[in-house]
Design a protein around this nucleic acid. Sequence first.
DNA 1: TAGATTGTTAATCGATTAACAATC
DNA 2: TAGATTGTTAATCGATTAACAATC
Lengths: 209, 209
Amino acid sequence: MADNFNVSNPVIRRLPRYYRYLSDILASGKTRISSTELAQRMSLTASQIRHDFNCFGGFGQQGYGYNVQQLTSEIEKILYLDKKIPAILIGVGNLGKALCSYLENDAPGINLIGLFDKQPELCKPSSGLTVNHIDAIADFCAERKPKLAILCIPGDDAPKLAKKLCAMGITGFWNFSHVELEVGSVAEVENVHLGDSLMTLGYKVNSIK
Amino acid sequence: MADNFNVSNPVIRRLPRYYRYLSDILASGKTRISSTELAQRMSLTASQIRHDFNCFGGFGQQGYGYNVQQLTSEIEKILYLDKKIPAILIGVGNLGKALCSYLENDAPGINLIGLFDKQPELCKPSSGLTVNHIDAIADFCAERKPKLAILCIPGDDAPKLAKKLCAMGITGFWNFSHVELEVGSVAEVENVHLGDSLMTLGYKVNSIK
DNA sequence: TAGATTGTTAATCGATTAACAATC
DNA sequence: TAGATTGTTAATCGATTAACAATC
């Protein structure tokens, strides 16, 4: 109902997790669920769940709870999973290939339309898409108008390339390079810093008494 | 100096980022830096930086700032990057292979000692390690005592396997499967939910006015 | 109607920021 | 000594939790 005009980052980051759990619950055949039960399953508080859902208008019914089907589909809409964002992937190395097969199968809200690499002849395209030379990217963007770029390239090259891609109409980056992009407010950036994630885990494992 | 006895999660999650930036600054030849300058570079507040560092005892000097070399090495110690945690990787598909080559080259604080798959004969080991059958994992753990497991397997199999691995002495999971593990308090879990990350980005990109 | 459970406001908690005395 | 900048405490801000009236 209401649109995302006042939604905090912590809430946004919880939405995909709600969606995952609710999809499973829906698949299990359950038709209704209360905030209390969902909270138990997800290790959250019922209060937080109701609070979160109410950012978007409230999908429940007093005395009943939430209809699983309806709630799932509402969150699906909030996350725009029905719309498929056209995306390109740059850097078809090991990681790039892994992401390709994920994106072509069950990735949510995205449509991979182009692959690019500095040395396309070295990349065996396991996917249906051919790998283009990176110099072809400007023409490709002008014609096909991708909105999202997935960066699987070495860190040093990433910031410069990102800036260029912004000028070509890219408004979102899924960044797997090990550095941070400087794109100001013209694009959204989601960093997947595997090194940071691993160091955090290492810290915790080493800290176990 | 002081040990990690009262460090909040947000602080822990910022440590790897500090480490990345400081390593770069060190490599650039700069020998001292103030909290104000570091804050500008990292888009943080100087206050937060001083606050964060003081969780561990304070590494600066009034009137001077921080010695880059010393600060970097302190954070390196805090993150235990000198210790290499012995780790195994399970599921040598596209993603598993990508992580292998990352882990064998420049991954921080980890030492990959074993690879496992349900169908090892189908996995071309691009690395120096051979791929073992997953049934060999118990014997391997008994002998080599890995502490960390990297799960690159389908979601459905992950929770059951994780539980078994806990019993084999694993105390940390780097989880790339799309479900959450239930390991109670016997192990640390760091989830890399690529789907969640992508949905968050999709939400933001679609929300741009 | 009575019971259940939401939607929503108020209270609490924790993290971030500001301020400044300590001190190099 | 004067200037700079930390370490640390206090103030602010925002997110989470608790409480309860609304209502199905």
